[in-house]
Simulated scan of single mutants.
Amino acid sequence: MINIVWLGIVAFSMILEFFTRTFFTLWFGLGAIVAFVLSLLGVPLPVQIVTFLVISLVLLGVFRQYAVKSYKYKTNIHELIGQEAIICGENANGSLLRLNGIEWTAETEDGKALNIGDRVLVRGIRGIKLLVKTKS
């Protein structure tokens, strides 16, 4: 019966890790795999529980920081730099431009106002705004 509990913990932690990508529950899944193997070998339940906790917490403490640092969400936002666009509107946050079918808030590097119809070149990114330079 306890074998099913360990397998349930493995499945739950791996599925939760898949959806959250926090590198937190992964280590408990690995600890549960070790505890599952111990249960198959007939090791007493208290030893299984202690081993599960020790393995999980040690792996969490040692490897989580490296896993988080090595995992980066990959986006293509930097591919927008160097592209041309036309200012198409305004909102409360500033001027809008449409690039690759997505509307972005745009601002100039020097703070100059943009007008609808201005042709701009994307020069950089600041937070969620595109930094642009007007084209002559």
Score class of each variant (00 low, 15 high):
residue 12 F to H: 03
residue 67 A to T: 14
residue 16 L to V: 05
residue 30 L to A: 08
residue 37 V to A: 14
residue 118 D to A: 13
residue 67 A to R: 12
residue 15 I to A: 15
residue 34 V to M: 06
residue 64 R to G: 08
residue 72 K to C: 11
residue 31 G to F: 07
residue 1 M to S: 11
residue 17 E to W: 01
residue 116 I to W: 09
residue 124 G to T: 01
residue 99 L to R: 04
residue 50 V to D: 12
residue 131 L to D: 07
residue 78 H to I: 03
residue 48 Q to F: 02
residue 109 E to Q: 14
residue 53 L to T: 13
residue 18 F to Q: 10
residue 84 E to Y: 03
residue 52 F to H: 11
residue 83 Q to E: 12
residue 2 I to W: 14
residue 40 L to S: 10
residue 15 I to P: 01
residue 50 V to S: 10
residue 45 L to P: 06
residue 4 I to Y: 12
residue 125 I to F: 04
residue 87 I to D: 13
residue 43 V to R: 10
residue 111 G to H: 00
residue 133 K to V: 00
residue 119 R to P: 00
residue 93 N to T: 01
residue 115 N to E: 14
residue 59 L to C: 07
residue 5 V to G: 13
residue 32 A to K: 06
residue 54 V to T: 10
residue 12 F to T: 02
residue 103 E to H: 07
residue 34 V to G: 07
residue 1 M to G: 10
residue 26 L to S: 04
residue 110 D to R: 04
residue 114 L to S: 11
residue 7 L to H: 01
residue 113 A to Y: 00
residue 82 G to Y: 07
residue 128 I to P: 05
residue 118 D to L: 12
residue 84 E to S: 13
residue 103 E to V: 01
residue 98 R to H: 05
residue 100 N to T: 03
residue 4 I to S: 09
residue 110 D to A: 09
residue 12 F to N: 04
residue 54 V to L: 15
residue 36 F to S: 09
residue 60 L to G: 00
residue 24 F to N: 08
residue 133 K to G: 08
residue 120 V to P: 05
residue 38 L to P: 00
residue 69 K to Y: 11
residue 102 I to W: 02
residue 112 K to G: 06
residue 93 N to Y: 10
residue 126 R to I: 04
residue 3 N to T: 08
residue 84 E to M: 10
residue 70 S to I: 04
residue 1 M to F: 12
residue 17 E to N: 12
residue 1 M to P: 10
residue 57 L to N: 09
residue 39 S to M: 05
residue 18 F to H: 12
residue 60 L to I: 00
residue 102 I to P: 04
residue 42 G to I: 00
residue 102 I to C: 08
residue 101 G to I: 03
residue 118 D to V: 02
